[in-house]
Structures are given as C-alpha cells and as structure tokens.
C-alpha cells in the first residue's frame, strides 16, 4: 500500500488493476456512481422543456445538451465499472434510493427561463466542481472528466445566451429571467457541498487527491466568476450581502440556508419522489428493448456458429 501512496503523492495516476486501499476503492465507487446518477437524473428537469422550447434552434440545442448528459452518465458508469462493480448494480442502488444524486435536480423547472438558469448556474457550478477532477488520482475517472468538461462549456454558454436574450426582451421576459435566477442561485451554491468544517470526508479525499480544493474554496471561486457575468446579463443575484472585499480579493456573500440543503438531501425536496419514480419507470419500460436486443444478438450468434460448422 505504500507504493499506492507514493504514486499518489508523486501526482501519478492510479490505474484499475493497481493495488489500492479498500477505502479508496469504496470512496471512488460511491462518488463516481453518485456523479453518474446525477448526470442521468439531470436529464429530467431539462427534458421537461424540450417539447416547449420557443424555437427550433432552441429545441435542437436543448436536445443536444440532454443527450450530452446521457453520455456523461455513460462515461462515468464506465469509469466506476473499472473498480469492479457492475453498472446494473449501481442502477439498482439508485432505484432503491440507496445511492444519491445531486440535490440540485430535485428542484422543479417552472418556466423556459429555467433552462437558461440551469445552463448558466447549475452547469457553471458543475464545471467549477469538475475541472479539478480532470487531475484526480484515479485515471479512468480523470479521463472521463476531461471528456465531460469539454462538453460542459457549451452547456453553460447556451444557458447564458438564453438568459441574455430574455433579459433584453420584453419586461415580462426580463422578469421571467430574473425569477429563474432568484430560484436557482442558492441551490447552485449548495452544489459545492457543506461548509468545510462540516465536511468530514474532505480531508481524506484531499490526501488521496480525489479532491483538490475544499468545498468553500470552490464555492468562492464560483461566486467570483458569476458576479460580473450577472452584471453583463443585467440580472441581480438574490443576495444583498454580495460585495467585493478588496482585502480578501474575493466577493463576500450571505449565509446559505443549510437546513434546506439537508432537507432536500434527505428526500424532502419538491421533486425527489417524481425524479426517482420517473427513472424507475423509464428503466422498467425499457426492459423489453434490452431483452429483445439480447435475444436478437444470441440468435445471430447461434446462426453464425451453425453456419461456421457446416
């Protein structure tokens, strides 16, 4: 195991068949699976608006984005499988509520402007979280994240563009954009996880170089990035305490309501039940497709092996 920590400390990558501490393997499986679940559950809030997108251009873009999220799920389940679990097992754990996905997807998408706020804020926060994981100590996870991060930047820009357009539109459109930002701002800040002093596993993940920056540092980075962008959008972030602090070289911001975070995490968000129910149903209703494809493949293998023998 010393060889493991030596590799990690030297900033080398750990590859699937290397010796690794059991706790490292378990932590990674849980984190990558939760990440994969978030990608596929995250298709729902936006999928909700595909049929109602305001133009063909917006519809094509939104479909491409939701399709990307399915791909992200696939890359991540693939990375998790290199640690010796089956994707089918991980899906069971999701469907049984035994593994989590990001709480952000338990909020509803009430208007078209939510597509803008999700792209700009939710994908934006995800990018800040994910870029450091491109250098995570576990090779397959890091490589999956490189692919994902490349695709995410389009997600954030298309969201920004939606809000920018609405913000400069009619008074009603501007109000719709502002309302979406008002609702998504605080949950987006919660995406970075609990404050450092309440995040017991962070130190170990940092030592293993799964994590490279603390939750609070990443959150601060996101706030600093986002404040000037909000100005360009002509929209207000719903926090009167946001102001530049020259001494710290960062923006100060108000306190996050962590009781809301833990309530949503524990299943009491507005959409927890709907999201999981829809995921289970989609899986069950797709069973016949998976079985038919398997039967077709088996039949062709039989036919070709018989033909080969003749």
């Amino acid at each position: 195991m010393d060889e493991f920590q030596t590799l990690v400390d030297a900033d080398e990558r750990i590859e699937p068949r290397d010796a690794m501490p059991e706790a490292y393997r378990r932590t990674l499986i849980r984190q990558i699976a939760q990440h994969a679940h978030s990608e596929i559950i995250g298709m729902q809030p936006e999928g909700n608006w595909i049929s109602r997108a305001p133009s063909l251009r917006r519809k094509a873009i939104l479909m491409a984005k939701v399709q990307d999220e399915a791909g992200h799920g696939l890359y991540l389940y693939g990375a998790a499988e290199t640690l010796g679990v089956d994707r089918a097992e991980l899906l069971d754990l999701l469907h049984e509520g035994k593994q989590r996905y990001s709480s952000i997807f338990n909020y509803p998408t009430l208007t078209w402007a939510d597509m803008g706020a999700i792209g700009w804020l939710v994908d934006g926060a995800a990018i800040v979280n994910q870029v450091p994981i491109c250098r995570c100590s576990y090779g397959p996870y890091a490589r999956a994240m490189v692919r994902i991060c490349k695709e995410e930047s389009f997600h954030q820009r298309q969201g920004f563009e939606i809000l920018h357009t609405l913000s400069r539109g009619t008074a009603a459109q501007h109000a719709m954009a502002q309302d979406a930002v008002d609702r998504w701002w605080w949950p987006s800040l919660m995406m970075f996880g609990p404050p450092d002093d309440q995040s017991p596993n962070s130190a170990q993940s940092m030592a293993w170089r799964i994590k490279r920056f603390s939750n609070d540092d990443l959150r601060q980075k996101f706030v600093d990035m986002t404040v000037p962008q909000a100005e360009v959008l002509g929209l207000t972030l719903p926090d009167p305490q946001i102001r530049w602090n020259a001494e710290r070289g960062h923006h100060d911001f108000g306190d996050i309501d962590w009781s809301e975070f833990f309530a949503v995490l524990n299943g009491n968000g507005p959409c927890n039940a709907v999201r999981l129910e829809r995921r289970r149903r989609a899986h069950e209703e797709g069973a016949w497709v998976r079985e038919a494809a398997t039967a077709y493949a088996d039949k062709h293998r039989r036919v070709s092996s018989t033909a080969g023998a003749a």
């Binding site: 693939g78 998976r290 494809a293």
Partner: peptide
C-alpha cells in the same frame, strides 16, 4: 482508447 460501453452485439 477512449472508453467503454455495453452493447448486445458488435453492430450495436
């Protein structure tokens, strides 16, 4: 090598 996937046969 870019990654992996599950599929019932080579064509899929």
């Amino acid at each position: 090598h870019v990654g992996s996937l599950h599929a019932p046969d080579a064509a899929m």
